[in-house]
Amino acid sequence: MRYAQGGGLSHERRQFREGIRMMAAERFAAGEPSSAIAKELRVSVRSIQRWRRLWDRGGPRALQSAGSASLPRLREAQFAQLEAELAKGPVAHGWPNQRWTLARVKTVIGRRFHKSYTLQGARKLLLRHGFSCQVPARRAVERDEDQVTGWVKETWPQVET
């Protein structure tokens, strides 16, 4: 199953979904119909039917979350180190410009932690930790925001007319 956020569910989201399944289990025990449970919990009837079959076989314990599909390759402490490395910039790691690409991030992970990631794996790792894939606007180092604002307010209206 694919998730929009690219990388599965967070621990909090997994716990939230498990809570919904446990509420359904309480209603199974009360003998409520699947359609009423689905409407109340705002899930599909098919999910309720699947959960009911699991509950019939193993009780509420069968509806508990199984946890992550796999352990993350980089621990939180290692990811913090990776963040520090990324903050240094690509030039500090030997690339000619200041643009991070997935291939470069993947290479830094391999060099620093001796872990192998695919490009998509590196992308999902970064997305899970709040990074975006947007390219920042290029701004001159010498740019003075006060002067730009003054120019837009004073000079630009005269140029327009």
Rank of each mutant, 00 (worst) to 15 (best):
R139Y: 09
V135H: 12
F113V: 03
L119P: 00
R123C: 04
G130H: 04
R138V: 10
S116D: 14
Q120D: 09
A122W: 01
R123N: 06
W151I: 00
H129D: 04
K115I: 09
T118N: 06
G121Q: 07
Q120G: 13
R139P: 00
S132Q: 12
L125V: 06
A137F: 08
E145I: 10
A140L: 14
V135D: 12
D144H: 07
C133V: 05
R128G: 14
R128E: 10
A140Q: 10
K124W: 11
L126S: 02
K115P: 00
Y117W: 08
V141H: 08
V148M: 11
L126C: 06
E142D: 13
R143A: 10
L126A: 03
L119F: 02
P136Q: 11
R128Y: 06
R128M: 11
V141Q: 07
C133A: 10
V135F: 10
W151S: 05
P136M: 03
R139A: 10
A137M: 08
G121Y: 05
R143C: 07
W151N: 06
T149E: 15
G150I: 01
E145N: 08
Q147L: 11
D146M: 07
V148I: 11
H114M: 02
W151L: 06
F131V: 04
K115R: 14
T149L: 15
V148W: 13
F131N: 02
R128C: 13
D144G: 00
R138M: 11
R139T: 10
Q120S: 12
R128A: 15
F113C: 00
K124V: 04
T118V: 05
Q120L: 07
S116F: 03
Q147I: 02
A140W: 08
R123P: 00
D146K: 15
A122L: 03
G150K: 03
A122K: 01
V141N: 06
L119K: 05
D144F: 00
K115A: 11
E145T: 07
L126G: 03
A140V: 05
S132P: 03
H114L: 06
G150Y: 00
R138N: 11
Q120E: 10
V141W: 05
Q120C: 08
G121F: 02
E142Y: 07
V141A: 14
A122R: 01
K124C: 13
L127M: 13
L127P: 00
W151M: 02
V135T: 14
L126H: 02
T149S: 15
L127K: 12
C133L: 14
R143M: 11
Q134F: 06
H114A: 14
Q134W: 04
Q134P: 00
T149D: 15
L126Y: 00
Q134R: 12
Q147N: 05
R123W: 04
P136S: 12
R143E: 09
L127V: 08
T118I: 04
A122P: 01
